[in-house]
């Protein structure tokens, strides 16, 4: 939930206004309420990662629906944050496949490097650490989502290095962190080797 101090009126930036209209246009006229989720996401992004009461009411007005219905959606999905988050929102997947592949190590590496517990934000406001259910990239487990990108095939060492790089503001490469090409077999091809060799 929003705190009382955040009473600044919310409004779209010109860019996001156009984007919002693009989302609304996907639905038949009169059914603009269907765009509530992309709009909430858009507003969350514009508001540095979290939605507030004002945003929910703004979107309710914008789509001509009751505020309680927007609030229901915004509270139902865990991807909408109701508290301010750091610049980088580190979301560690701890569901079974990632866990089997060592997500516990990733979690403790994050905690150690950031010095915060799950759900906490670092003092400098750079990182928020949270635990999420299956991120849907089990093939590259363990996986961590930071902002809009996935960082895959992590080890505690590569995780720490990743956070170090982010903290310094360096560019980091999303995707597998162990040099693997997308989700291709680790250590190269295992079948059709002859075919590849011929080709």
């Amino acid at each position: 939930m929003s705190t009382a101090s955040e009473t600044v009126a919310f409004a779209w930036t010109a860019e996001n206004e156009a984007e919002a209209q693009r989302h609304i246009a996907k639905y038949p006229s009169g059914k603009q309420q269907s765009a509530v989720m992309p709009l909430l996401h858009l507003a969350q992004k514009q508001n540095n990662g979290h939605v507030t009461q004002e945003i929910m009411e703004f979107i309710a007005d914008y789509l001509g629906m009751p505020a309680i219905r927007v609030m229901e959606v915004a509270t139902f999905y865990t991807m909408y944050n109701h508290k301010p988050v750091g610049k980088h929102h580190v979301q560690v997947c701890t569901t079974t496949p990632c866990w089997l592949r060592g997500s516990d190590g990733i979690v403790s590496a994050c905690k150690k490097r950031l010095g915060v517990e799950m759900g906490g934000t670092t003092a400098d406001g750079m990182f928020t650490l949270s635990e999420v259910e299956c991120a849907g990239a089990c093939v590259n487990a363990p996986v961590v989502a930071i902002g809009d990108d996935y960082y895959e095939d992590l080890t505690p060492e590569s995780m720490t290095a990743l956070l170090d790089a982010l903290a310094k503001g360096e560019d980091v490469k999303p995707g597998p962190q162990n040099g693997r090409q997308t989700s291709a077999p680790e250590g190269g091809a295992t079948t059709l080797k002859d075919f590849i060799a011929k080709a």
């Binding site: 009751p66 505020a67 309680i68 609030m71 229901e72 139902f76 999905y77």
Partner: peptide
Amino acid sequence: VEDMGALWRGEHTEITTYL
């Protein structure tokens, strides 16, 4: 009147009036 709703999800679901 659209005053009531269910917030959050699963075990944390709460029925409430808006604010």
